[in-house]
Amino acid sequence: MGEREFERTQDLRFTASEPPTSETLPLAPPSSAAPGPTPPSVVPSPHGSAPYGSAGAPAAQVNPHATTSLVLGITSLFLSLPFVPSILGIILGFVGLARSRRTDPPTGRGAAIAGIVLSIVGVVLGVFVAMAASTFVSDAARAIVDRSTAAPEGGATPAPPADFVEVDAAQWKSVVEHPGDAEGQAVVVFAEVARFDSTTGTDRFLGGLGVDQPGTERELEDPAVVIGPEVMLDGVETGDVLRIHAVVTGSFELRTDLGGTVTVPALTIAEFEDVGFVDLGADLAVGSAEIKQPGWISVPVVVTNGGTQAFTYSATLVAESKNGKKTYDRGPVFVEKLGPGEKEKVAVDFFEGVPADAVYRVESVERFVE
């Protein structure tokens, strides 16, 4: 170091170090050589790993679809009922299986197959779980209904309440005309089931109701809706004639064939008995034939109204051979507005063609409410 330079370092209050000897000189290239860019192959990694750009092991190949399928397959074994994990597991399993064929060696093939198999098992378990749950719910619901309608201890059928009343024609007419005012009334009436299907529902039927047991179809002309537990109405069919204990619980609006509506009473049934049609032939008594003149035979018939209201009777009397194989003639029987318990005698006349040894019987009979 020259004298001038040494003085300048003293002015700056620095102490100059001794110049390095040849034994301590660095091994770097001479300062005259301009430093070149460091090759990428020797740039150190900031994390101490292999240098960037250096030749190393290839990156591990992955198959996320196969892995996800396996996870969903395992999940579906525990959550089989919703079916969603199982379905997704099957779809992703096949996708993962297809992707595994594009790599060498195949990546995720085993996981994809396992995911598919487990997902299918999950679907099968889901079907069994759903069937078991449906059966359990159905059995539980029926058990609840059975308990609600079960007879008391001892197996006795519960007796109808004391306030159930066998109403007469006037009382029933009031219920039909003003069902809202009649709510809560407990009545005993007859019902012919007119409609009982999927339209009405399994817990109710549309029928013709009245106070007298009918003798023919459609004799009961007052429509009403009868409601009851399904377990109670099981076995009831269209055309059945029932004697029911029921409570008036409201009304329904029914459509008519002409496009209008009609208000009918609604009754909730407590119990019923299938009684069928009454034999109206018992209301007609056939007397002995009387020959008025040659070719003219008169047969008396006494008609007795066995109902609780006025009826008009229309019947047919047939004259036939003793063995019933030959019919000679027929004659009409007609009695109008016969009151309850009343009797009326009519004569049925037969003319040419009826022998003296013919027998006579009631072939058919109908009655209509007046």
Rank of each mutant, 00 (worst) to 15 (best):
A59E: 14
A59M: 13
A59W: 09
A60L: 14
A60K: 10
A60T: 15
Q61H: 13
Q61R: 15
V62K: 10
V62M: 14
V62D: 12
V62N: 13
V62L: 10
V62W: 15
V62C: 05
N63Y: 05
N63L: 07
N63F: 08
N63W: 09
N63D: 12
N63R: 09
N63H: 13
P64I: 11
H65E: 05
H65L: 07
H65Q: 09
H65Y: 04
H65F: 15
A66E: 06
A66S: 15
A66H: 03
A66M: 07
T67Q: 13
T67P: 01
T67E: 10
T68S: 12
T68I: 15
T68M: 08
S69E: 05
S69I: 02
S69L: 01
L70A: 04
V71G: 12
V71L: 15
L72D: 04
G73S: 14
G73Q: 12
G73R: 06
I74P: 00
I74F: 08
T75L: 15
T75D: 07
T75M: 08
S76T: 12
S76K: 01
S76F: 01
S76V: 02
L77M: 14
L77T: 07
L77A: 13
L77E: 04
L77N: 05
L77I: 12
L77K: 09
L77Y: 10
F78W: 12
F78A: 15
F78S: 15
F78Q: 09
L79S: 10
L79W: 10
L79T: 14
L79M: 11
S80D: 13
S80R: 02
L81M: 10
L81A: 09
L81G: 00
L81P: 01
L81H: 01
P82D: 12
P82H: 12
P82I: 11
P82E: 08
F83T: 10
F83D: 01
F83R: 03
F83W: 06
V84D: 03
V84K: 08
V84T: 13
V84L: 12
P85Y: 04
P85F: 05
P85T: 02
P85L: 08
P85R: 07
P85E: 01
S86L: 08
S86M: 05
S86F: 05
I87S: 10
I87Y: 09
I87N: 07
L88F: 08
G89D: 00
G89V: 00
G89S: 04
G89R: 00
I90D: 00
I91V: 15
L92I: 07
L92D: 02
L92G: 03
L92F: 08
L92S: 06
L92W: 02
G93W: 04
G93E: 03
G93Y: 02
